[in-house]
Design a binder for these strands. Structure first.
Lengths: 256, 256
DNA sequence: CGCAATTTTGACGTAGTTCAACACGTGTGG
DNA sequence: CCACACGTGTTGAACTACGTCAAAATTGCG
């Protein structure tokens, strides 16, 4: 049916399997098998490239990152990450930008705003990424026709909201920056494991700046802590490759 | 119309008006006017008292608080606060209890778990409270019959999820404990203003311990900061009455 | 009142911030 | 090609906000 080939053709990034994608509930054909048309074709566009180069504003700035969408702009679609990492940022009233989260392959973006008129954060591609796009209006229209789809949609949104809550709950209120960092590393590796299959390794495309900003600490503190964790043989960083060497110890650390 | 009397008699709690309640979307009669039956009667129980005394476990412990429901127990219903304040607590794997939020009149409780099998946090009444109860299964059943109700439900859940996110976003990643506290005070007064009509005053039933626990700081730090804010004439606390004297300054403080 | 729980205040140590310098890689322009 | 700017990351030293421990003050209740 929807078994995606494991092909690794010209684009080097690894794509998440549809069966491991959170969007699955509303992407696969809806209804009884004999239904010849696939509703999802109406609202779904599969695997769109979102690369840094696509950002027209600064055609030669490698660090700019491609904005998938921008905060406060009208909401037209929600997304599922196929490959790469996205960072989500939010500007407060003073225009100070905060990193409020990251999204990895198989995870959704902006689904929490599906029924709002505008995005409440920006999504920036860290590197050459790809996404599947689901058009909000068309999805709404289709879901009105197909009760089954609507039910899937509700459960999807509820589940997502719950998972988001868990993810953020795991990070707030940590006693020390060290335990916070440990929790963060475990969290992102865990989330990547769903498609990479390895919960101890991660190709880390997020900059120290963004991590520090997300965790609410200074770059310097983050750097020192990463050095410390490496000295203690709990993690290993070579280039962009992050490895968790002692997951149990990290978990102890993470629990305050 | 809803001019609250200033009475301070033995039942001090004010009830929120249904028109200011988040549950409204699924509480009012659904469908065309001529529809003689009101679906909501099937799944809704109005205004149940939830007082500390009702907690059978410790019949003479004033501080125990009545558990509206307990984490990990099967989910049977969701609630809307009619009067009083609830605290939401969550135990992590080690059994350490954290305060993860508060709920004021007009706000919902456990709606984020409506489609889960069990509650993922406990809700404790701080004082003599009351709630409206919506039974999950019956609501589901009714919503399958009435598409209009289902639509309302989806939009309700989405809106709630969004508001929750905003509420928590406003607090995470604050630079100092002081700005965090300022943001918290503004937040709870704001939320109470919806039914009390006054965004600068609040009858504070939450203990310092719970506030400190929620904000991730020590009771001592909280106490010192409250004293400091009072010295600076930004707030005033007499008994359980909290007044915000300089909202603009507090807002500046809150913005890191 | 008198006891217990809660809150406040004080003194001190430390984790994390701040400021500054430095190292490294990369793109740019003379 | 080298010099330079620039972004990113690491390290050092001084400062400070918050946590910790302890004790006093206040509140609440039988």
């Amino acid at each position: 049916m929807t078994l995606p080939s494991k092909s690794k053709n010209k684009v080097p990034s690894r794509f998440v399997d549809c069966v491991n994608c959170s969007m699955q509930a509303i992407c696969q054909p809806i209804g009884p098998e004999d239904q010849s048309i696939d509703l999802s074709n109406n609202y779904l566009t599969r695997r769109i490239e979102v690369s840094a180069e696509k950002d027209a504003s600064q055609h030669l700035n490698q660090a700019a990152g491609a904005k998938l969408f921008e905060q406060a702009k009208p909401l037209t679609a929600i997304f599922a990450v196929c490959s790469g990492t996205f960072k989500l940022t939010q500007k407060n009233e003073e225009g100070i930008e905060k990193v409020i989260g990251f999204r990895f392959p198989g995870e959704l973006i902006a689904e929490d705003a599906l029924f709002l008129e505008s995005y409440n954060y920006s999504a920036v591609a860290l590197g050459d990424n790809s996404v599947c796009e689901v058009f909000a209006k068309k999805l709404s229209a289709c879901s009105k026709l197909a009760p089954e789809l609507q039910l899937n949609l509700i459960q999807l949104l509820t589940k997502q909201s719950y998972e988001q809550q868990c993810n953020s709950q795991a990070l707030v209120g940590k006693k020390s920056a060290e335990s916070l960092l440990a929790a963060f590393l475990l969290n992102i590796c865990q989330r990547n494991a769903k498609h990479s299959g390895n919960s101890a390794k991660l190709y880390l495309t997020i900059s120290r700046h963004d991590i520090a900003c997300f965790l609410g600490m200074r770059r310097e503190t983050l750097s020192r802590l990463l050095s410390k964790l490496q000295q203690e043989q709990l993690i290993k960083i070579s280039g962009k490759q992050l490895s968790l060497l002692a997951i149990d110890t990290l978990r102890q650390l993470a629990n305050n």
